[in-house]
Design a protein around this nucleic acid. Structure first.
Lengths: 226, 226
DNA sequence: TATTGTGAAGCCTTTCACAGCA
DNA sequence: TGCTGTGAAAGGCTTCACAATA
């Protein structure tokens, strides 16, 4: 599919993208949060120094991160908050809706199902699956205004196709995570977020990201210990 | 407090630690998960190549990461799974119990309260707070065998002291996160994990880590978009 | 023989410092 | 004047390649 890409602004339609540091992508997401807050406060313009201070990074870093994708600032002034916010969403790809399925509707799965943060972004959870939908239905509908139907995991492939789902969130117990990942891959999902505390393998054409709560705690504790 | 440190094995009691890459610490946590799995399978010995393959990293990287802290391997053989696991826990500081409070008992907070992954590690949630404990009590106790009492946020400082709590998990709506963080700091908590999707500030003597679900998704989506 | 531990090379990322510009 | 955009320097991390050794 031939389409406009954010960095076309800088590199043209045919040029190769330069390699963007993974760390830059992570920071982009933080800058976006900062800009959301600034826009809420009706701030029109923000300097790299201001953004840097909110996100606890170096100002030159902020400018360099943006400069990978184009010239978004005005010398002597700073960055237009609204425009910059638009550009970053375009770069990240969050300027369009992403349709998501959650697999495993235990405590964590239902918390994710209800997570307000997703609604504010373009992340739309359009299906929920469990191995035993009957036991969890009451659990969910009790907590929701408009209850979502919990589907049996066996219908995964069919529903992913019918509902144009591109991303799967795994929130099952660790023992089931690899099996579910394989089912998601088989259903042609393009990306997987794994919340189960175990390493899983997927083919190279599927993008996998892990969110391990205990790893984040391990990291915290390491720095507390010295 | 003068105590044995993991790296004393390598650097001696008085020597300065070398600077350990933050990335190494993150990987240590992954290696530990891999070793847990290997021990479950009754594997006695693991080579750096095996551990590397499980964690999707380079084998030299694995060896170098361990070598920051000592010589744990046997040339020609590999690493003793049980010993290595012990050493990594010692390095991370997860060889002792850490007492944790959760603040904000909505969907996410109660999911964290029930999260099985914490129990298996030395992470013990010993208090739960909310602005309005009455509305959430039923919500929690319904889901737990042994219900935990939800306390009012005003008792935070007192309870943190009484129960020797060192870490606070913020699971409130984003608007309350900064206020709660300040209360935790005031209560002399040493570390904070922030699950609320907003940047918060704490003094430099408090260790802060963020877990932003939407950031992880933003990252995934960036790579899906090209 | 097999695999660790590690110096050195290579690569990548961050920061500095200042030219360029509104 | 003030702040961006960026080349160059500095710093840090990963990988290579091989000596050390159980």
């Amino acid at each position: 599919m031939e389409q406009d890409r954010p960095a076309d602004r800088k590199f043209g339609k045919t040029a190769k993208y330069p390699k963007i540091p993974e760390a830059t992508i992570r920071r982009l997401s933080n800058y976006l949060k900062a800009l959301d807050d600034l826009e809420t406060k009706s701030e029109k313009v923000a300097s790299s120094a201001l953004i840097a201070s909110i996100c606890s990074v170096n100002a030159a870093q902020v400018r360099k991160d943006f400069a990978y994708f184009g010239e978004f600032g005005i010398r002597g002034m700073g960055y237009n908050v609204k425009d910059l916010r638009y550009h970053i969403k375009e770069i990240l790809g969050t300027n369009r809706e992403w349709r998501i399925a959650i697999i495993g509707i235990g405590n964590l799965g239902s918390a994710l199902l209800m997570y307000k943060g997703f609604l504010k972004q373009n992340y739309k959870i359009v299906a929920a699956f469990d191995q035993d939908p009957v036991t969890v239905v009451g659990h969910i509908s009790e907590k929701m205004g408009k209850p979502i139907e919990i589907l049996h995991i066996d219908s995964l492939k069919e529903v992913v196709k019918a509902r144009n789902i591109e991303i799967g969130l795994i929130a099952t117990p660790p023992a089931s995570a690899q099996t579910v990942a394989a089912q998601l891959v088989d259903a042609n999902v393009k990306g997987i977020m794994n919340f189960a505390p175990t390493q899983i393998k997927v083919p190279p054409n599927v993008v996998l990201r892990n969110v391990f709560f205990t790893s984040a705690l391990d990291n915290l504790v390491y720095y507390l210990s010295r």
